[in-house]
């Protein structure tokens, strides 16, 4: 299927000097759900912000590459135009309007929509997805629990009737059970609402359980990609992301790859040696 989002060779600088993305390419198929995995500082959020063009608010800039949404370049568009085209980003850390009520937060999500009947029915739909929010609609959002805040942030994005949601680290700071619940809702959203999702996550195990395809980033580059089931089985990914090769000395993904290659080389060497008949072990 034609991709709804296509990112090609994108390079991003902050403040004109800090080179953060060094050629990122990825695609999200129509109605697809894709994960962008990677450790702290890999460049996941920056990639999402390059698409929504919220980079500009942080003095970031796409210096090279193309970003196309439904075949159309969105590089030069204002964040508001991009929202109107159908891309809504859920920022890392949820970023609710704390002093506004839950319902006002949701209404703000519909800001770019024409202000009318659709807002009411969209509100009801969000409350169906997140019954906890319906009970707290008059509460100031700042008083919601972390999980409820994440739900409100996702619901707020839904109010913009997006074709693509850029979801940044929804698992942040949440208990595993809650993460699971939220990911299931995200999965259902994608399936039932015809909305494509690009999910940036550090929690690879959880993310891989709901996405079809995933990219792994490190140091501003995509270093690996593949179908979710394949990546989940992949040894290196498991080792690096699923806690099996934990944080000893800032092990980088590339280093693991190199180690793996070296190990494979050793094995080959040994094989050849044993084939040659000598055995010194």
């Amino acid at each position: 299927m034609a991709p709804v989002l296509r990112i090609e060779d994108v390079e991003v600088y902050y403040g004109g000097v800090i080179h953060v993305l060094k050629g990122v390419s990825l695609a999200v198929p129509e109605k697809g759900i894709v994960a962008l995995l990677g450790a702290n500082g890999a460049g996941k959020s920056t990639t999402l912000k390059a698409v929504s063009n919220l980079l500009r608010a942080e003095r970031g800039e796409v210096a090279r590459g193309t970003i196309e949404f439904l075949g159309r370049s969105v590089l030069k568009l204002d964040p508001a135009d991009i929202v109107r085209l159908g891309i809504v980003q859920v920022l890392e850390g949820r970023r609710l309007f704390e002093h506004l009520t839950v319902e006002e937060n949701l209404r703000a999500g519909a800001y770019a929509q024409t202000w009318g009947e659709t807002v009411k029915s969209d509100l009801e739909r969000v409350y169906e997805y997140f019954p906890a929010l319906a009970e707290r609609r008059e509460l100031k959002a700042g008083y919601l629990s972390g999980g409820e805040q994440q739900m409100a942030a996702i619901g707020r994005a839904m109010m913009g009737r997006p074709k693509l949601i850029l979801l940044d680290e929804p698992s942040m700071g949440l208990a595993p059970l809650l993460v699971k619940e939220i990911f299931q809702i995200v999965h259902r959203l994608n399936r039932d609402e015809d909305v494509a999702i690009l999910l940036a996550e550090q929690n690879a195990l959880m993310a891989l359980s709901i996405v079809q395809y995933a990219y792994v980033m490190e140091g501003g580059r995509v270093v690996s990609e593949g179908r979710a089931d394949a990546l989940a089985r992949d040894d290196t990914v498991r080792r690096f992301y699923l806690g099996m090769a934990d944080h000893e000395e800032h092990q980088s993904y590339r280093k693991i790859l190199e180690e793996k290659r070296a190990a494979a080389g050793m094995r080959n060497l040994r094989k050849r040696q044993s084939a040659g008949g000598s055995d010194d072990s």
Partner: peptide, 17 residues
């Protein structure tokens, strides 16, 4: 509403258009 949203978090406000 937009104004009060901006007052709380102007980046988040921009993210919804």
């Amino acid at each position: 509403l937009g104004l009060r949203a901006i007052a709380d978090d102007h980046v988040a406000a921009q993210s919804m258009g």
